[in-house]
Amino acid sequence: MHHEHGPALDVGPPLAGACALLAVAVYLVAARRLRSRGDAWPWRRDACFAAGGAALFVAVAGPLPGGAFTVHMAQHLLAGMVAPLLLVLARPLTLALRVLRPGRPRRALLAAAHWRVSGWLLFPPVAAVLDMGGLWVLYRTPLLAAAHDRPVLNALVHVHVVAAGVLFTAAICQLDPVRRRWGLPLRGATLLAAGAAHAVLAKTLYALPPPGTAFAPGDLHVAAQLMYYGGDLVEVALAVVIAVQWYAAAGRRRRTPRTLMGASHIP
């Protein structure tokens, strides 16, 4: 996407793309170190993290087809939903805690994971409000128009999209060891509410552009349907993650005597 801006903005996408690639490199090195000392770490997690990093890279640096708003929507779908899901499935926090030697960085990471504020942020409804609420504010207030010619604001919006996406996905999937894990009903209900909020917003965008913007109707229609059906795909994937957890837990309950049922299993 080409903007009529000075060099200040052009630093953003390459920097973000480089960060994504760097994160993938760090993950792969860490996983390799874990394996070389004899620990098991499934390869599919490496693949997930690499794919997540690639999705982020394409979102910031890749050429995407379609009108301006369709491109924007494809970027958001990749950076805010697809990439977070893939990154979270790779359990980066688990990997970091296992690969770091006892010492200050590991203690700091553990403290952050068990921090009270992290616990609040990872409470599924809170994470959903931060993610979906952010989207509603972006598309239903003049924020999107304002961010168009303010590089710093634009960068902040994108950072929020990625961060809130990761937070929401982590809260729904709950794969990494954090302060507190929530039950399936709460996570399922949160997913339902968030999915509905996403679908409704996508439908309204079909008819009504974000305030202060002037996208062509055709562009708007394609973007709204991309948001709607793309959101569906990621939502189904999140539901599958939860469903697989339930299926595995039900299988364990069936195998283990009832007296051991209370024993928690940390993958």
């Binding site: 399922g188 999915g195 509905a196 679908a199 409704v200 439908k203 309204t204 008819a207 229609h221 569906d232």
Partner: peptide, 28 residues
Amino acid sequence: HFYDRSTPAIGLLTDGLLHTAELLGLVI
């Protein structure tokens, strides 16, 4: 139509909830 402009707000909201519930229903 993907979105009928005469769709009332309550219809839109219910539709969003039902649509998401169907997706989750498939997985469940």
